[in-house]
Amino acid sequence: MCKKCKCCSKLPWWSKLLIATTGIFGLLFTVYFFNLDMKLTAMMEPWLLKWYDHVDRDKHL
């Protein structure tokens, strides 16, 4: 919301809420549709696997 813009400050609270919700919805839907959540976690996986290699374990039968 632009502080300098007078039209924004004149907006009622519900329309500000609506804009915010639409924005969040749009962002989430973009993440969902373009599979950005999985693309992000796929990037995390190799780091996690490297981390596990360094965890101490009592490996035996």
């Binding site: 969902y32 549709f33 373009f34 599979n35 796929a42 996986e45």
Partner: peptide
């Protein structure tokens, strides 16, 4: 070579909205 898919399906408005809502629940 990719672990994940390029994107999710578009199933028409109703079914995509439903799938999206379930994705939110899973998240």
């Amino acid at each position: 070579g990719s672990k994940v898919r390029t994107r999710r399906e578009w199933r028409g408005v109703k079914d995509t909205a439903y799938d999206f809502s379930r994705w939110l629940v899973i998240m």
